[in-house]
Simulated scan of single mutants.
Amino acid sequence: MSRVGKRPISIPNTVETVVQGSKIVFKNGKNTKELETYGRVQIDLNANELSFKSIDNDPQSRAYWGTYRALANNIVIGMSTGFTKILEINGVGYKAAVAGKILELALGFSHPIKYPIPEGIEISVDKNTITIKGSDKQQIGQIAAEIREFRPPEPYKGKGIKYSDEIIMRKAGKTAKK
């Protein structure tokens, strides 16, 4: 039985939720997000609480039950508070700056890297940290992974771009022959 799917989602007053058949529509001001369940789970909306039920006891149905509950919860959290990922830049001469809707990265290459910032995403740079904010958890994670991919941290000196909570296991360098 799904431990995730069992828990109901409490919906704040700022997020308006409507169930249309197998689709759930979330509205917050001008933002609108839809979650299509394709009839794989049963949806119950009571006052300010959204809950899901599995259609049958099949393992695939129970997987959908937890998955759709988690996706709906991420939409509600994203619309009410938002998500944040923080990246750190380590290395001599490595720097980042935001110019309009473009993130410019100087990471030791012969040219600066220009990353276009997508709509609905806010990126800010403060010294050696890049903060990515938005309402879509999947999109925030994808953007953070793409930026990290430009120069992943290396294990000898720790130079590169890493997540703020990531721990880099350091390796010992070469030792001289005796």
Rank of each mutant, 00 (worst) to 15 (best):
R3K: 08
R3E: 13
R7V: 10
P12H: 04
V15D: 01
V18G: 06
V19Y: 11
I24F: 08
V25L: 15
V25Y: 08
T32G: 02
L35E: 12
E36A: 11
T37D: 04
Q42R: 12
I43E: 08
N46M: 13
I55F: 08
S61R: 02
A63S: 11
A70P: 00
A70E: 10
A72V: 00
N74S: 07
I75A: 01
V76M: 01
I77W: 03
G78R: 11
S80G: 00
F83W: 11
L87P: 00
L87G: 00
E88F: 10
I89V: 14
K95N: 03
A97N: 06
G100E: 05
K101E: 12
Y115L: 07
P118S: 06
E119R: 12
E122R: 07
D126S: 14
N128A: 12
I132V: 09
G134F: 10
D136C: 06
Q138L: 11
I140G: 00
A145L: 12
I147K: 07
R148S: 15
R148A: 15
R151C: 03
E154W: 13
Y156V: 14
Y163V: 08
I167H: 09
M169V: 15
K171V: 03
K171I: 05
A172I: 11
A176E: 14
K177G: 01
